[in-house]
Nucleic acid binder design. Structure first.
Lengths: 155, 155
DNA sequence: GAAAATTCTGGGCATTATGCATAGCGAAAA
DNA sequence: TTTTCGCTATGCATAATGCCCAGAATTTTC
């Protein structure tokens, strides 16, 4: 579970040029192919690398509006609300957080008008008491992992 | 930019089994290899597929605590705050949102105690007036894209 | 409705990568 | 010291890739 330097370098390399193969990676890192193979296998069975799924941009799919909604949930309704939100495709992510039985979810929509429809669908459910929405205007730091990997492998 | 059925099926397939190649994908989808190749190229130059970066789990890296922080920013300090937050590896993501010059960022930390250190570092900057943090307890819906792809390709 | 343009097909071929196996070597642990 | 473990280096059969092409099918344009 500890990440050493080579693991870190491999992760950074894969993050920057994901389509390179094991052989090419071994050349770039200056180690043997089998080593890269073994490290990759270990990182995957460790769960450090969950997968290599395509990184899909919702905006390019026609959903350029992103918002975060904080939901206040009725006591004991958590499971129902979870199940309900799972059925809404525009809910990309859902977290339960500390606080007043709250949840935080990431939404996308086709337009600001469409966002209203999405929110109506999200909150049109009995267990949800109140919702407050923050629309994303800019995304100065897109989801990133390399700095954290560098930090983690610097031990 | 419009996503048709084949694009949708290809994206779903890649999302579920990312390591399959073009040839295998063409077999699964029942189309010619060149077709899959062309669709993939188009999806990538369209920006629908940003890349195939490894999906790294911060928890497996030793950062099991996730939190969302809402930051209130002094007028005109936006750029400075952005630059500051970019230098913090534990800031995985940063958005500016509607509201009172607010920002929302996703943080990770090694423990609850470590989260305090991260938050101190985040808010220890002049342009930030106030911060409120919500610690993530559960993640009932991890970041997902397949339902949205299905929706988008159903036209 | 006819012509043009685009997309998909199916095949071939040289190059390259993969999966798997093996053996030697050095460093760290028992 | 002996054992264990990870890295190196190599070989080989199989499979995938990149690139080419000509013809069929579909969609778009006029």
């Amino acid at each position: 579970m500890a990440i050493d330097h080579l693991d870190g370098a491999l992760l950074e390399l894969l993050a920057e040029e994901p389509r390179i193969g094991v052989l090419e990676a071994s050349r770039r890192l200056g180690v043997a192919r089998g080593t890269v193979q073994a490290r990759l296998d270990r990182l995957q069975s460790n769960g450090v690398i969950r997968g290599f799924g395509p990184d899909v941009d919702p905006a390019a799919l026609g959903y350029p509006v992103t918002a975060f909604a904080t939901l206040e949930i009725k006591q004991g309704q958590g499971n129902d609300v979870r199940a309900h939100l799972t059925t809404v495709p525009e809910v990309l992510e859902l977290h339960t957080t500390t606080g007043h039985g709250d949840m935080l979810c990431r939404l996308v929509a086709r337009s600001n008008a469409d966002l209203q429809r999405v929110i109506d669908r999200v909150v049109g459910f009995d267990g949800i008491v109140r919702a407050s929405t923050a629309i994303v205007m800019e995304n100065p730091v897109p989801l990133r992992i390399v700095p954290l990997v560098k930090q983690a492998s610097a031990d």
